[in-house]
Design a protein around this nucleic acid. Structure first.
Lengths: 143, 143
DNA sequence: CCTTGAACCTGTAGCGACTACAGGAATGAG
DNA sequence: CTCATTCCTGTAGTCGCTACAGGTTCAAGG
């Protein structure tokens, strides 16, 4: 029962995982994935496990996890005996952050929306948007 | 009618404008504000106009404008003869970006919310969150 | 006038998460 | 065997600051 894993080049892995070549090398450099074996000429040879790991990373990143968060997730997965609890807490914590960002952006949206609605693109020199940003008048730079 | 502007130190300006000292120096370096005159010993001396300009910048940044966007706004203001139209368009463009980011984050929120709700922090080894991220099984790193 | 301590100066490096070169060497299909 | 393609390393750039280190200047008190 010899399980052969022919191995793929970094370019093939990039196509399979959806990560760019440079990103894969970057992940290796920062220790997110392990350094793969090389050919006699020095080219990286990746295994199926690497494709799965990279796909995992890409999906977690797409959900907005930081690389630090991804590292945590992978650490739990790598440890084997992960319980749902820790994973859940990581995801819940991230969800909270995302909701915070949404709330913040919605505040900006309201302000910007209000500002632009008050400015009807008129040709008056006293633009309400500028007024809102200015302290009565913006200091011009030294001539 | 001699208008005196005694001038303030960078620390005072920082307190007045709400920008940090290092940030002010950084803005000077990238040309967002002009290099102020110096004392004999080389300390910067800022004028009232600088306080107004920095306050403007800080407010625009707080609304999420990039420094590039701020530069554009200031260019229009500096040119003097700005019409509302250009300002409006800049703000409207930024508003559109903010709305796009909100929509994107809301998609993440929905996915994360769904994932965490399916995981009840049980002690099962097959966590639904991990399953969702994995390609059936995450490849473990080489031993 | 002199001392002290706070504030200021320059220059550089670091953050996150890549991306983009330059200048080569290896690969693999014809 | 040729040659286009892929791959290699190393470095620097992106954005918007922030944080040093190691020195100089300023202003207030004695």
């Amino acid at each position: 029962m010899v399980e052969e894993d022919p191995g793929v080049s970094i370019g093939t892995l990039a196509r399979q995982s959806g990560c760019k070549i440079e990103t894969i090398r970057y992940y290796e450099r920062i220790g997110l994935i392990c350094s793969p074996p090389r050919t006699a000429g020095g080219h990286r040879v990746f295994a199926t496990a690497d494709r799965k790991r990279l796909t995992f990373i890409r999906r977690a990143r797409a959900l907005g996890f930081t690389l630090g968060g991804v590292k945590e997730l992978l650490r739990l997965v790598d440890s084997g005996a992960y319980g749902c609890a820790e994973i859940h807490d990581l995801a819940a914590g991230h969800l909270k952050e995302v909701r915070g960002k949404i709330a913040e952006l919605q505040r900006l949206e309201a302000t910007l929306s209000d500002m632009t609605s008050h400015c009807e693109r008129g040709e008056r020199p006293d633009c309400p948007i500028i007024d809102a940003l200015s302290d009565s008048l913006v200091g011009k730079p030294r001539a």
